[in-house]
Each structure stands twice: as C-alpha cells, then as structure tokens.
Computed example of a mutant assay.
Amino acid sequence: MSFSNKLITIFIVLFINISSAQSEEKIVYIDLDYVVSNTKAGKLIISNLEKSKKIALSKFEKKEKELKKIEDDINKQKNILSQEELKKKLVEFRKEIAIFQNERQMVINDFNKKKIDEFNNFFKKITPIIQSYVSERNIEIVLDRKNIFVASKKKDITNEIIKLIDSKIK
C-alpha cells in the first residue's frame, strides 16, 4: 500500500470517528424573540415601552400641531407684515422648529437607551435560568432560531424555557 493510500485511509477513519462523536452532542434551539414576546416579564417590558412611546408620540403630535398653526399664521400674515417683521417671525419659528427637533431626537435617544437597558436586564435575568436548564439536561449547544435554516421541532426548547422563566421571574 502506498503512502497516499495509507494517508487517505487514516483521514477517512478519523472523519468517520469525528462524525459519530459529534452526532452524540445534544444541540437544541430557542426562539428568543418568541420568548421575549410570550413570557410575563417580556410582555410587561413591551407593554411599558409601548406606553412610554405613545405618551411621547402624543406630546410630539400636539407640538407639531402648534408649530403648523404658527406656520399657517405666518403665511396668512405674509402680505400684511413688513419684511423685517416677517423675517423676525420666521427666525423665531425656525428656532422653535430646531428646539422641537432637538427635543424629539433626545426623547428618541432616551427611549432607545431605555429599550436596550430593559432588554439587557431581561436577558441578564433569563440567562442563568437557561444555563441551569442546559446543564441539567446535558445540552452541549443552544442556537437562536434566527440562525437555523431547518431543524426538527423536537430540538425546539422555546416553550419549555417560557414556562421555566414564567415560574422563576415574577
């Protein structure tokens, strides 16, 4: 037997052994988006974020209506006011728009930061729960559902994790 045949045989044997060893590993997946939207704690976070978003939106809609009214008033007075008075009103109006846009951007940034913080805290709470579940069942790898093309539904632990989280986090 030549050297190349021996080498090929060794690679085949190693490949078969590695494949069978890997098939014994327990790999499961979880749909984290579904976990967030279907656990009690996740629903509470989403509900609170929606409420604060609605409050901010209603505040901005009110301010936009006021600014639109001011703009309409300026347009109606265009022919009546002198150039200086018109420029003065336009400068004031533009300042108010700039202030409004800055406030709006600050609220959006604060909301996004709050959203990130809330979900980070949520994941800090559920990670130990998932880790204990994984260690109890001798699971080697847990993948996120988004990163899987096709898998057996038997490998989905999402509903089990939701029940576990709901029982542990109040």
Rank of each mutant, 00 (worst) to 15 (best):
K63Y: 08
N48P: 04
K40D: 08
I74Q: 12
K43D: 01
N38G: 07
E64P: 02
S52W: 10
I46S: 10
I45N: 10
V35W: 04
G42V: 09
K63M: 11
K62D: 14
E71G: 12
L49G: 08
S47Y: 03
E64Y: 06
E61D: 13
I55K: 12
V36I: 15
T39V: 13
V35L: 15
N75I: 06
K43Q: 14
K69S: 13
K69N: 13
K76Y: 15
L57I: 05
K65M: 03
K62N: 11
I46A: 03
K63C: 01
E50F: 07
K69R: 12
S52M: 09
E66C: 08
G42D: 00
V35F: 10
I70W: 02
T39W: 09
S47A: 01
K62A: 15
S47F: 10
K65P: 12
K43F: 11
S37P: 00
K65A: 07
K54Q: 10
K62C: 01
K68Y: 15
S37K: 14
S52H: 01
S47W: 04
K51P: 03
K59L: 02
E66N: 11
E71F: 09
K59R: 00
V35N: 09
L44T: 01
L44R: 15
L67V: 04
I70N: 04
A41F: 08
E61Y: 03
K63L: 10
K40H: 06
I45L: 12
V36N: 07
K76L: 14
L67D: 10
S58E: 13
K51E: 09
S58F: 03
K68E: 08
I55V: 03
L49S: 08
L44F: 00
K59M: 06
L44Q: 14
E66H: 07
L67Q: 04
L67F: 00
K69P: 11
K43Y: 04
S37Q: 15
I70M: 06
L67I: 00
K59H: 09
K59T: 10
K51M: 06
D72V: 13
F60K: 01
D72M: 05
E64K: 11
K59W: 02
E50G: 14
K54S: 02
D73P: 09
E50D: 05
I46T: 08
G42Q: 03
L49V: 04
N48V: 01
A41Q: 11
N48H: 07
D72R: 07
S52R: 10
A56D: 10
K63Q: 09
K65G: 09
E71R: 04
K76E: 13
N38R: 14
S58R: 07
S37R: 13
K68W: 12
K59F: 02
V36T: 15
S37L: 14
E71C: 00
I55N: 02
K40A: 09
I46K: 15
I74N: 13
N75F: 14
K69M: 01
K54R: 08
E61A: 05
K69W: 10
K69V: 03
K51S: 05
K51G: 06
L57A: 01
K68V: 05
E64S: 00
E61G: 00
K53L: 09
I55S: 02
D72F: 14
L49F: 00
N38T: 12
E61T: 08
N75R: 15
K76I: 11
V35T: 14
K63R: 12
D73F: 01
K54E: 04
S47N: 08
L67A: 07
